[in-house]
Computed example of a mutant assay.
Amino acid sequence: MAGFRSAVLLAATLAMGLSAGLFFAFSCSVMPGLGKADDRTFVETMQRINVAILNGWFMLVFLGALALTVLAALLQFRGGDRRLLPWLIAAAVLYTVVLVVTGAVNVPLNDQLAAAGSLDRIPDLAAVRETFESSWVGWNTVRTVAATAGFGCLLAALVTGARSAL
């Protein structure tokens, strides 16, 4: 059972790290790069990204990070090293922030951008961009910080578990 607990914790850490990395990549490269693009390029690219990201691999990692973290906490609670629990609970809470922000802010903004329609039918690309960009970027920063902090908590849990095994 200890091997299974470790595997779940490792998988949770990997999934959360991948999610944190995705949000970080948007924060430090994708959005700053698009920020320098013209309105048409910005809107078109974000519309395409928002469609492309909805795939099985993304959803597995995005939702799996929380599911695996909660499972890791339950497994530790039921017979593992309880010293890991504060780290696991903190990671789950931080990643819940990511999911809440995504569902409450970023996805509705993505939906508004999609609802603007085809580029040829949008009369004012600058207005569409203006209602989307700064809010989306700001809340993505919140997701980046929360996911990265959650990843750090899972790394701390791994280190704590490894130290107790020595």
Rank of each mutant, 00 (worst) to 15 (best):
E44N: 11
Q76H: 14
L85C: 04
P86D: 06
V51M: 09
L66S: 10
M59R: 05
Q47H: 10
V93Y: 07
T69D: 00
V97Y: 05
L66T: 15
A90L: 14
Q76V: 06
R83P: 03
L63W: 14
A65Q: 08
M46S: 03
L94I: 07
T69Q: 09
G64V: 02
L94M: 11
R78D: 09
T69C: 06
T45M: 04
P86F: 00
T45Y: 01
L68P: 10
R48E: 15
T41S: 02
L66C: 03
G80W: 02
A91C: 10
L60Y: 09
M59C: 02
F58I: 00
M59D: 01
E44M: 11
V70H: 02
T41W: 03
R78G: 12
L60F: 14
I53E: 06
T45R: 00
I89D: 02
A67G: 09
L54K: 08
V97L: 12
Q76F: 12
Y95G: 01
R78K: 12
N55F: 03
Y95P: 00
I89C: 04
Q47T: 07
A90N: 13
V98S: 08
I53M: 04
L60G: 09
Q47C: 07
I89M: 05
R40T: 14
A92K: 03
L63H: 07
E44C: 06
R82C: 09
V97C: 11
I89W: 14
A90T: 06
V98A: 08
L94P: 09
N50M: 08
G64R: 10
T69W: 09
F58T: 00
V51C: 05
L75S: 02
R83G: 15
E44T: 14
I49V: 15
R78P: 03
